[in-house]
Design a binder for these strands. Structure first.
Lengths: 111, 111
DNA sequence: ACATCATATACCTGTGTGGTTATGAATTGG
DNA sequence: CCAATTCATAACCACACAGGTATATGATGT
């Protein structure tokens, strides 16, 4: 438990797993099928690392373990990188555009 | 050469180094003094990793090697994490606050 | 109770990484 | 030229990690 988020993100397979989970929660086996070159235990261990880093949560439903994304830790990474955001300029604008869109969405949610 | 940015960021010492470099460029030795528990070759190798990941550049001036931050790769990480930004809501506000402050700074720069 | 499915754990193995000390290479000052 | 400074590289060690196969665990269906 209590594993470093950055080292959990260091592995490309685990990053891909998160990329898959961002769409919707997914069972371990389902996830594993996206990585045919890795054995089932390999998948399971990657998921364990993500769990221990707090990047995913698990929900057991019958025989399946459904993994889903947890935002908190990723937000920490985002907070860390915010310190450096002053170093590039162009991207700020697209980020602002994104935030504007997001704000509108949230406003609609409330209405 | 051509090393993965995320694995370069996986080490806490290297992240601290970047945190120091975000203020201003710094000579290797100067940087090293911030980590008294690590030997000089240790510092040098961390800097090599950062170099190979494209996270820093070096400029030689007389006897000193001045390291400074390179934004491109960090921007890549930022782009990656952008995919997940939809997953947290509260943090968006502080991010907006940051952007507002930044925009004001940039406006002042132009005036 | 038993077989099956879904996932996790145990154990081994090769490779990578962070740390060290010792040494090399380039620059500078006397 | 020699010594000191500044930094990088080499060689080595301990350990962590990703991968595999084999096995355990737990829940479901018959």
């Amino acid at each position: 438990m209590e594993r470093d988020v950055f080292s959990a993100l260091a592995d490309p397979t685990r990053r891909q797993m998160l990329d898959l989970l961002v769409r919707h929660e997914q069972a371990a086996g389902e996830l594993g099928r996206a990585f045919p070159s890795i054995s089932q235990p390999g998948i399971s261990r990657h998921l364990r690392v993500l769990r221990e880093a707090g990047l995913v949560r698990v929900r057991q439903v019958r025989r399946n373990r459904y993994y889903s994304l947890r935002s908190e830790r990723l937000a920490e990474v985002d907070a860390w990188i915010t310190k450096y955001r002053g170093f590039w300029g162009v991207e700020l604008d697209s980020l602002e555009a994104y935030l504007d869109a997001k704000k509108r969405t949230r406003a609609e949610d409330r209405s």
